[in-house]
Design a protein around this nucleic acid. Structure first.
Length: 220
DNA sequence: GCGACAG
DNA sequence: ATCTTGTCGC
């Protein structure tokens, strides 16, 4: 599918932060996405080992999660892990994988944050600009923000707040299991991001497309 | 200055 | 993310 690269990835940490500040104003988190319009859901994940990064994008079709397409890409890991700058570590290999996509998913779910980020532009938001399609951030642990206790049942949720701003939700995708952190990436609002996440989750903590992508990326 | 810190 | 042993539960 069509990609919209906005800048080169070979930058210093300082330049990376400047780019995030330049781009964050373009992130759209006010667009509803109705479930009936969601047919193809893609899961995105990256595995890293011995200086190499492998990206996997698995496109599934609701409601049965039949795999429509799987694309892989492997490249040298170009950037260290720096909290807040994950997109500069995983962006290059993701860009290559997205370029191989023959189908056009209705929404992408990322392993990582959307706007639940210090500068409101986590990897799901950042790559959303490349894709110009709805993207959702689904993190397993917190990067920024706080939340109040939530019920133990599946579907329980609590707003994720940072500096007085609601940036996502802590969402229980499975009873009595630690919540995941959902935030809009780009071209989708928070309520829709939560609805899509629940629609893409079965019996496990993580959404099915993410689990499939994680397995496809392997351990290198 | 101190603590926090996606994957 | 990756490194790692045992352990709890379906």
């Amino acid at each position: 599918m069509q990609l919209h690269p906005r800048h080169a990835w070979a930058v210093t940490p300082r330049e990376a932060i400047a780019l995030q500040q330049d781009l964050k104003g373009e992130i759209d988190t006010g667009r509803p996405l109705a479930l009936p319009d969601v047919r193809l859901v893609a899961g995105v994940d990256v595995s890293v080992k011995n200086g190499l990064s492998r990206a996997a994008v698995v496109v599934t079709r609701l409601p049965d999660f039949a795999v429509v397409e799987t694309v892989l890409a492997t490249r040298p890991t170009p950037f260290p892990y720096v909290p807040g700058l994950l997109s500069f570590r995983e962006g290059p290999v993701l860009e290559e994988a997205f370029g191989k996509l023959g189908t056009e998913p209705d929404v992408f779910i990322f392993d990582g944050m959307g706007i639940a980020h210090p500068r409101r532009i986590g990897i799901a938001s950042h790559m959303g600009l490349w894709l110009e399609k709805p993207t959702i951030g689904c993190g397993k642990t917190l990067l920024v923000g706080r939340f109040e206790a939530l019920g133990p049942e599946k579907g329980a949720a609590a707003p994720l707040v940072d500096k007085g701003e609601t940036i996502g939700v802590a969402l229980r995708t499975r009873g009595r299991v630690s919540p995941v952190f959902i935030s809009p990436g780009h071209r989708i609002d928070l309520a829709s991001a939560v609805a899509v996440t629940l629609a893409a989750t079965t019996r496990f903590r993580l959404p099915e497309p993410i689990r499939l992508a994680h397995a496809a990326a392997g351990t290198l």
